[in-house]
Nucleic acid binder design. Structure first.
Length: 835
RNA sequence: GCGAAAGUGGCGGAAUUGGCAGACGCGCCAGACUUAGGAUCUGGUCCCGCAAGGGGUGGGGGUUCGAGUCCCCCCUUUCGCACCA
């Protein structure tokens, strides 16, 4: 190791200087164009992980570039600083959740500073403050006024490990908690507060079209999650009760093939059916059995289809036919009307069920180009032409759906309906550590919102969280017992707290002015900084935070706080950092500690490695051997630049404000060097403008270093003059400063500058210098590479044709054959087509 | 089942609009300097072949003077959603 290159020393030195000089100031010059870079809100779990390091390194490179390009850059940092893990950890360690959270923030802040991330640290924000509570509660009350926050008793997902309710979005496909992948979620029936995100389902779906700079993957996931489907509601009638039974279908064209009606076990009609049954006790017992086996919170993956006939029938309004009513365990009460028509010939699930229970199968839709077999082996689920469908026989499915729906509307037994898969957002949490929901319950007045002037409702101090599943606040009489804001009588406070996804739904507005106390956010600041130009984070929040925050934006627009509907112009989902092929996690014991890496290699090396290993959107596997390459590269740069620093310092600075180089005055080696420097600068500049394949940027700067080493002799002997060398070195250092800022500032100082790189304007590349003067063109014969010619850049096409055909290695392949045509691709290649 | 992304050397990856496949790095091989090398430097490294040459971007077909890139079919992997009617 080079004794003069000590990354630790260099990094400590510059981190101190940066902090003293308050380098990064978003409000530097109000007139400048703005750029808002945002990394996803981290949860202070106690330490940075490599995913964080990647996230911040990406954002920092972009922030530095935009700053040097002359933008005002807002690059804030904040902490999603309360929630279940804080409380669980506090219970475990017997500490106050607040202390635990804040001491973790301190640890993580130091690590980020150690990484050298260019935040404006004066804009730091944490959500566990009375002021943040106030505005969370303020938002809740505005939604309550608009009917967007409501309370209802419902079956909810419950994580026994968290001992609290989870939103649908927080339940993993495996039926487990998003924080405890080994804990199955169970259902409980509780009184809960909900936000009416379903009111915005259509907008959330429509506006995805606006998000042209979001990854398709995320938009697809969101559209899928919203799950809009257009269909028809049809009223069957149960003659025995004289009651209508409404079903929902997307395939009303198959309704003549309906041979049964299936009800969800929880369907409201079930209790009536039981009481009117000939043998109520038997039916009740069987219904209970079906209910017990039903689809629950996505826990069952391969559920056996079970059902029972109720003994009742329903009349199909299209053909007057009476079909049996069944209870079936695979019918979901939450979707549609909780009742479906069974068309075994047109739906595979219905087919399986009906075959099992001997319910008849009647084909009603056949493929356009062939007949269905005599006995169906499986349902035919595609569109086709209608058969056995009374007056609609012969129509195509599409026309039939339209005509049949219209007829239902005319005759009053059905209508067009839109169904969404997304459900309202349950925000009640039975935990201590969160924003109290600001309502009181009064025996006389019912649910009464806390008036704005009494906000914030704060958490009582000194409560020992038990983790036992009852809201801890319920055990604090001083908190619970209050007076009704309306009548003044005795009342009880709500003891649940809010989901912390509320906090993360609007934090990035508050960054623009983190300390205002007169409003949640301030209009002019938002006007200037929004939309967020670039949001960077993992894909994990595609259907969580990224949908909630879009919902919040629309509510904020309707309240009048903002004028736009979509707050984030561009989203970037970075890949994960893996270890041995799987995500790093404490339970797997494959965590790479960034602090150790900083100590071993230095932060610059870690940054360069993380960026160089793969394009940022892709997952990559952490490798201890590959990081050595990054370390060697930086050491080489340091060695080379230091070696010539003295010589270069003696000539005036070149990188900023230089005059044009006179090509004719340059030696061959000088031209080579300047060309490479400008080509590299061109590549990095263009890439920073949006492609962000930082791995190729670093590769290009490595090539520049290789070019410098190759020219070492010419440099040593002075054939490459100091002024030219200075330019190349300065460009190199400035480009490096995006990725490895500490070493860059150290070298920059060595080159004779007193200001850090962040104070330098990003240099413009010179297209003329970057262009090749002479280039090698490939010569192909019938598309196969046969030779190469060296030509001047500005040579004419005729000359190229002539040269290509006379090139020795090409001539033997032409072999006297007839030249059909010659294709010349300027600056690239020549293809001679022969017969 | 529905939706999305991807498949290139021993490895990570490059090739931005169809134009010299394998940049850059890791690893490996050889050499130099060394008491030493886990430091540094130099050279080599897609496959077959002594060579000329041939083959080559998951497989098959197509468009084109020319395809990793565009079109069609198939295979594989990853991710998301899912008894959603």
């Amino acid at each position: 190791m080079d004794p003069n290159y000590d990354p630790q020393k260099i990094e400590t030195k510059w981190q101190r200087r940066w902090e003293e000089s308050k380098l990064f100031d978003a409000d530097a010059e109000p007139g400048r164009r703005k750029y808002y870079v945002l990394e996803m809100f981290p949860y202070p779990s106690g330490a940075l992980h490599m995913g964080h390091v990647r996230n911040y390194t990406l954002g920092d490179a972009l922030a530095r570039y935009m700053w040097m390009k002359g933008h005002n850059v807002l690059h804030p940092i904040g902490w999603d600083a309360f929630g279940l893990p804080a409380e669980n950890a506090a219970i475990k360690h017997g500490r106050d959740p607040a202390d635990w959270t804040f001491s973790n923030i301190d640890v993580m802040r130091e690590q980020l500073k150690r990484l050298g991330v260019s935040y404006d640290w004066r804009r730091e924000l944490a959500t566990c403050t009375p002021e943040y509570y106030r505005w969370n509660q303020w938002f809740f009350l505005r939604m309550f006024e608009r009917g967007l926050a409501y309370r209802k008793k419902s079956w909810v997902n419950w994580c026994p490990q968290c001992a609290t309710v989870l939103a649908n979005e927080q339940v993993l496909p495996s039926g487990t908690c998003w924080r405890h992948e080994d804990t199955p979620v169970v259902e409980r029936e509780l009184e809960q507060w909900f936000l009416k995100i379903t009111d915005y389902a259509e907008q959330l779906l429509d506006d995805t079209q606006e998000l042209v700079r979001w990854p398709d993957r995320v938009l697809a996931m969101q559209r899928n999650w919203i799950g809009k489907s257009l269909g028809t509601e049809v009223d069957f009638v149960v003659p025995e009760l004289g009651e209508p039974l409404r079903i929902f279908t997307t395939r009303v064209d198959t309704i003549f093939g309906c041979t049964a009606v299936f009800l969800a076990p929880e369907h409201p009609l079930v209790s009536k059916l039981i009481s009117h049954s000939k043998d109520p006790e038997k039916l009740r017992a069987e219904a209970e059995r079906i209910k017990a086996s039903a689809v629950r919170a996505r826990v069952e993956v391969d559920l056996e289809k079970l059902g029972i006939a109720t003994g009742f029938t329903a009349r199909n309004p299209y053909n007057g036919e009476l079909v049996p009513v069944w209870l079936a365990n695979f019918i979901l009460m939450e979707y549609g009307t909780g009742a479906v028509m069974a068309v075994p010939a047109g739906d595979q699930r219905d087919f399986d069920f009906c075959t099992k229970y001997g319910i008849p199968v009647r084909p009603v839709v056949a493929p356009l180009d062939r007949d269905l077999p005599e006995k169906l082996e499986a349902a035919y689920t595609d569109y086709g032409r209608l058969i056995n469908s009374g007056p609609y026989t012969g129509l195509k499915s599409e026309e039939a759906i339209e005509r049949m729906t219209k007829d239902a509307e005319t005759k009053g037994f059905g209508k067009v309906t839109i169904q969404y898969r997304i459900k309202d957002w349950g925000i009640s949490r039975q935990r201590y550590w969160g924003t109290p929901i600001p309502v009181v319950y009064c025996d006389g007045c019912g649910i009464v919102p806390v008036p704005d002037k009494d906000l914030p409702v704060l958490l009582p101090k000194g409560v020992k969280p038990t983790g036992e599943g009852i809201s801890p606040l319920a055990g604090v009489p001083e908190f619970v017992n209050t007076s009704c804001p309306k009548c003044g009588g005795a009342a009880r406070r709500e003891t649940d707290t809010m989901d912390t996804f509320i906090d993360s739904s609007w934090y990035f507005y508050r960054y623009t002015e983190p300390n205002i106390s007169t409003a949640a956010t301030s209009g002019p600041a938002i006007e200037y900084w929004f939309p967020v130009d670039q949001y960077i984070g993992g894909i994990t929040h595609a259907t969580l935070h990224l949908i909630y925050m879009r919902f919040f934006a629309k509510v904020m627009r309707d309240i009048g706080l903002v004028k736009f509907s979509e707050p984030v112009a561009r989203l970037f989902t970075q890949g994960m950092v893996l270890k041995d092929g799987s995500a790093m996690s404490k339970s797997k014991g494959n965590v790479v500690d960034p602090t150790e890496m900083f100590a071993k290699y230095g932060a610059d090396t870690v940054r360069v490695y993380v960026l160089f290993a793969a394009p940022p959107e892709r997952d990559f596997d952490w490798s201890e051997t590959a990081i050595e390459g990054a370390s060697r590269f930086l050491a080489r740069v340091h060695r080379f630049v230091s070696r010539y620093a003295d010589r270069v310092r003696s000539v005036p600075p070149q990188a900023t404000g230089e005059g044009k180089w006179d090509l004719a005055q340059l030696a061959l080696e000088e031209r080579h060097l300047l060309r490479k420097a400008h080509q590299t600068l061109r590549h990095v500049t263009e890439d920073m403008e949006g492609r962000w394949h930082y791995n190729t940027d670093i590769a290009m700067t490595m090539e520049l270093v290789n070019e410098l080493t190759d020219l070492d002799e010419a440099i040593e002997t002075g054939k490459v003059r100091s002024a030219v060398l200075r330019t190349a070195l300065e460009y190199l250092v400035l480009m490096l400063s995006l990725f490895a800022p500490h070493i860059a500032d150290e070298l920059w100082e060595g080159l004779g500058h007193s200001e850090p790189t962040l104070r330098v304007a990003w240099p413009a590349f010179d297209p003329e210098l970057a262009a090749e003067e002479e280039l090698e063109m490939a010569v192909q014969v019938n598309g196969r590479l046969r030779g190469r010619i060296r030509v001047a850049v500005d040579v004419g096409e005729e000359e190229i044709r002539r040269r290509a055909q006379s090139e020795e290695s090409v001539v033997q392949h032409l072999n006297g054959r007839q030249v059909v045509k010659i294709i010349v691709v300027p600056q690239k290649l020549v293809n001679i087509v022969v017969k």
